[in-house]
Simulated assay, not measured.
Amino acid sequence: MFKNQEESKEFIQGFLPNLGKTPTNREVVLCIPFTDLNILSDILYDSRVQLGAQNVHWESSGAYTGEISGAMLQEIGVRYVIVGHSERRQYFGETDETVNLRLISAQKNGLTPILCVGETKQQRNAGDTESLIINQIKTGLTGIDQNNLVIAYEPIWAIGTGEVCEPEEANQIIGLIRSLLKNTNVTIQYGGSVKPNNIDAIMAQPEIDGVLVGGASLEPLSFARIVNYK
């Protein structure tokens, strides 16, 4: 929940000029607050940057005050949507079952969902990481087309805590996720305190296809360095 419309325009003005030498096979997606989507849809049209939202409801319309449907997002040029982010699960009661419904809705409306999975520190310390991830993937992907999907592994204990998930550990968990998929070519990202000073080591891991960036994406040059990893 950052940046009003004016701040978003300023960010884009500082960010886009840094993509001139970005390899063409790297996809850049900004998942921004609902209030910024319409204005940035116009600004980013025909640019290197795709537009994403941060959530989507499972119904196309109805008495769901405060929610946004997939059709509403698709209409204004949104291509991607985050589903099941750890903060949605932690603060707003998202479950694997509601996450699955949102994934289905996203795909039904021509959006590519970015499914977030990951464990808390308590779950990790209890040795439950693998069983939790397996259940999140199994339940979350019921009835989902794996040809139109991105998955992001975000260890909740490493988000904004100062604790670091070593690239090798992240690579191992992402390898586990890949082994659970029918389509092993699904893009699987890592998310958890991704910064300019660790992006190169993260992207050197063979199972990691990309990153889901939080705080480090708020500053144009910081995010550009991540996009232009070496």
Rank of each mutant, 00 (worst) to 15 (best):
A106S: 10
E94N: 09
G66E: 11
G52A: 09
Q50Y: 14
R124K: 13
V81L: 08
S61F: 15
Q90V: 08
P113S: 04
E130L: 05
P113H: 02
G66R: 12
V117H: 01
N125F: 09
V78S: 03
S131K: 13
G70E: 00
R102N: 14
E75D: 12
A53C: 04
I82V: 15
T120N: 01
P113I: 02
G70L: 01
V99K: 01
L101N: 11
A63S: 14
G118I: 02
G66F: 08
Y80H: 14
H57M: 06
I76H: 00
G62F: 05
V99R: 00
I76F: 00
G52T: 06
S69T: 04
R102V: 09
E94S: 12
S47V: 08
E87C: 10
F92E: 07
R124H: 12
W58H: 13
E67L: 06
V56N: 00
G84Q: 08
N55C: 09
I82F: 06
E130Y: 10
N109Y: 12
D96I: 00
Y45L: 15
R48T: 10
S61N: 13
G70D: 02
K108L: 12
N55A: 11
P113T: 02
E94R: 05
E130H: 11
E130T: 14
D128S: 13
S61Y: 15
G118E: 00
N55T: 11
I82K: 03
E130R: 15
D96H: 02
S131G: 05
N109E: 14
S86F: 08
G84W: 06
Q90M: 14
A53Y: 06
G127N: 05
R124F: 11
A106N: 03
Q74H: 15
N125E: 15
A106G: 07
Q90L: 13
T98F: 12
A71G: 12
L101C: 13
D128F: 11
G62W: 06
N55W: 01
D128G: 06
Q107C: 02
W58R: 10
S86I: 07
A63C: 14
E119I: 05
Y91E: 12
E94Y: 03
L51A: 05
G118T: 02
V117M: 01
Y91K: 11
R88V: 11
E97V: 12
R79D: 15
I68A: 01
A63R: 09
V78T: 07
T129K: 05
G62Y: 07
R89L: 10
R102H: 14
W58P: 06
P113K: 00
N109I: 11
R48W: 03
S86C: 12
N100T: 02
V117W: 01
N109H: 14
V56Q: 00
D96K: 03
V81E: 04
N55G: 09
E97Y: 09
A53E: 04
L51D: 01
L132R: 06
L111S: 00
G127Q: 06
A53L: 10
N100R: 01
I82H: 03
T95A: 05
R88G: 14
R88E: 15
Q90K: 15
I114W: 13
R88N: 15
V81D: 08
I114Y: 07
L51C: 02
T129Q: 07
T98Y: 08
M72C: 01
A71F: 09
W58S: 10
V81T: 15
P113F: 00
G84S: 13
L132D: 01
S47A: 10
I133N: 01
I104N: 04
K108P: 04
T95F: 03
Q74I: 01
G127D: 03
G66S: 07
L101F: 12
